[in-house]
Nucleic acid binder design. Structure first.
Lengths: 209, 209
DNA sequence: CCCGTTTACTCCGGATCGGAGTAAATATAT
DNA sequence: ATATATTTACTCCGATCCGGAGTAAACGGG
């Protein structure tokens, strides 16, 4: 029984209520998508393994001649989930994958205007995240969210995601502005501005010590 | 010739200078690791494919009876890289994977004290990121960085990473503080505080409109 | 000269992706 | 009333990617 974090993510959702994987795939696309996204094929494959381990049960229903499978958590599954919830997270911080940052990193190899384009693209790409956050926030504000009683913890998740999207947007904005000033600046001015970022932006770690 | 973003990441590094994959794996661990991390086995596998496509060249050297392979970019590789640098990023924003946030999301299924533990763990796990940022920042401030002439763009990457780590640290701090207050609050007070997050933290999208 | 660390990789089983495909049920337009 | 589009509810599969274990020579310190 080799369970991955994906297993526990699915198992956790089954503990909230029974789901068809079609519905759960949708649910996950609009909820955990921005901090724990999995391919649809995985969302369909995972509960079969859980059933194999006796952690979930499947009930096949018929709508006309079309089948649908509803999965639910078992008592064993609930115990396994409790065990996972109680164990500390592996010492393995947030894992970020950000192609735009790689492009910025490698941008001295290309033309300067492509850097500005990349940064503008970053801002465009964030709108999806902003819209998703607004949908969730709106539902909770209106009191119509599917899991309204989870408002305490969902507000924490919302807090993080909005802060993150804002950060990325603000960073792309100020960085693009900086790159656009470069043609009118001397190299000394450009370097001076860059060095100020290293000096005036100490990490929290250093600030505390 | 099916090149992935991983291919261009390696190709880009080879455009900076020739590398052995051992050195490049180390370089990537301390540089792009926090926004584009790849398994070591991939870093070793990728240049072989690049050589197969004629985008890189390998030169095998002998140190005693031990072999080492130094990879360099070819003219074709440089052209392919230029093409990639000029093309816009796929419309696919930052991809975050954050197990702690999944645990917060599912925390109503577990005990309240585990939420606080998860959030404290988040802060501990960030120290690696802070230390890496400090190392890079220190090298550039002292003028001893290996790619000191990339200071303009590296400062942008540094800016993002430090902002991100600070954000995660501050979020975990304020969220843990909130969860610790819960036992002394009424349910109405707790919900009120949660709702204020949804209201008082509008996304940049909504603020602009 | 012995031993632990660093250099420089290879191997492989299993997890995951992502796009294509299937087929029935339902909504929509004509 | 019928054709068409969309939604529901999945399966399949080749390729990518992970990550931990293993190998073996060179180097450095006591």
């Amino acid at each position: 029984m080799n369970l991955t974090t994906t297993s526990y993510a699915i198992l956790g959702h089954l503990a909230l209520q029974p789901w068809t994987m079609y519905d759960l795939a949708q649910q996950m696309r609009s909820n955990v998508h921005f901090f724990f996204s999995r391919a649809e094929s995985q969302v369909y494959a995972e509960p079969k393994r859980l059933v194999g381990y006796g952690l979930a049960s499947a009930s096949r229903q018929m709508i006309g001649k079309r089948a649908r499978t509803v999965y639910a958590i078992t008592a064993d599954g609930r115990r396994e989930l409790d065990r996972w919830l109680a164990e500390p997270e592996a010492a393995k911080g947030p894992n970020l994958e950000f192609e735009a940052l790689l492009r910025v990193f490698l941008s001295p190899l290309g033309k300067p205007e492509h850097l500005v384009e990349t940064l503008e693209q970053v801002r465009d790409n964030l709108s999806e995240m902003f819209e998703a956050a607004d949908r969730v926030g709106g539902a909770y504000r209106e009191g119509t969210a599917a899991f309204q009683h989870h408002v305490l913890t969902r507000s924490m998740v919302y807090d993080f995601l909005v802060s993150f999207a804002d950060l990325a947007d603000e960073w792309a904005e100020r960085s693009a502005a900086r790159a656009r000033r470069w043609p009118d600046q001397s190299e000394a001015e450009r370097i001076d501005e860059a060095m100020r970022i290293f000096s005036e932006k100490p990490t929290r770690l250093r600030r505390r010590q």
